[in-house]
């Protein structure tokens, strides 16, 4: 009896804190939405109008007229490509770092991380020149290629951590049962690490989805540019056009949210804890 009341109190505290945090964290974004559906006189109203105003869709119509959805499509292409190749390229190095004993492990692991050591801005000029030499400037391939040195180290580091959490015995058991390495990897290791791989995939996608400096410089033709470049148009030196800027921001944030909701099931605890128990 005493134990169950204790649990109830704990649960109440947990949920109150979660609700409180959700409200505080969501507030800036809610404010963004409210600003996006206000007319300019309402945006600059004083005292501030919180909920009582006439909503408008003028800012959304404005960005649709400015070809927002073309930029959106370009962002999806680059984001999907970056996500796919970041996982594919990182998978085997990550596995080897987690599983095997070998010489120079520390050195190799440090070496993989080199591109995390410096800000993106440092590499922009040499990458730009290199892409130009290969004739892939102003292509999606060129942009995806220039993102991979920055995303793959992260995918390796984190997938490695997740591989580490799987007991070696699990894989060995599969091998004893007659699985080849490939089968053991596909049927035993991969399903358990899916939450980690999914998290890494979302990371890579969002990296490219959000990145401005490279996409702006490498995709030089207007027809290929991505959402951040589009949004940047509204940020001026002296004046920012909040309405269309925020309308575009809302539409840009929806796809990552949907992807995350689809991937939710991979994060569920049972998947991991069920098969890892020794």
């Amino acid at each position: 009896m005493k134990r169950s009341t204790k649990k109830k109190v704990k649960k109440t505290i947990t949920y109150s804190l979660l609700v409180f945090l959700s409200v505080v964290i969501a507030f800036p974004f809610v404010w963004l939405i409210l600003t996006a559906i206000k007319t300019y006189p309402d945006i600059y109203a004083y005292p501030i109008k919180y909920f009582i105003f006439e909503p408008t869709r003028e800012h959304f119509d404005k960005i649709a007229d400015m070809n927002f959805w073309a930029y959106f499509k370009n962002s999806v292409i680059v984001g999907t490509g970056t996500m796919f190749f970041s996982i594919l390229i990182g998978l085997f190095p990550a596995y080897a770092f987690a599983r095997y004993e070998f010489r120079y492990k520390r050195t190799l692991l440090a070496g993989v991380m080199v591109f995390q050591m410096l800000p993106l801005v440092v590499f922009l000029l040499p990458i730009f020149k290199t892409l130009n030499n290969f004739g892939i400037l102003n292509t999606y391939t060129g942009l995806i290629l220039s993102y991979l040195p920055f995303t793959t180290p992260i995918s390796i580091m984190f997938m490695r951590t997740f591989f580490l959490s799987i007991p070696k015995s699990l894989e060995e058991a599969a091998r004893i049962d007659g699985c080849t390495f490939g089968q053991a990897f596909r049927k035993v290791i991969l399903p358990i690490t899916l939450p980690g791989i999914a998290a890494v995939g979302v990371y890579a996608f969002l990296f490219s989805w959000s990145e401005l400096m490279y996409s702006m410089s490498i995709l030089t033709s207007k027809a290929k540019q991505t959402i951040p470049t589009f949004l940047q148009l509204f940020v001026g030196q002296y004046q920012t056009r909040w309405g269309p800027l925020f309308a575009g921001s809302i539409l840009a944030t929806i796809p990552p949210l949907i992807i995350f909701m689809i991937l939710q099931k991979f994060f569920i605890a049972g998947l991991v804890s069920g098969s890892v128990k020794e």
Binding site: F29, W31, L32, S210, L212, L231, L245
Partner: peptide
């Protein structure tokens, strides 16, 4: 939500 918000959007917001 905060993470999915683009850098540039978080900044202006």
């Amino acid at each position: 939500l905060p993470w999915a918000t683009l850098d540039i959007v978080a900044g202006v917001m």
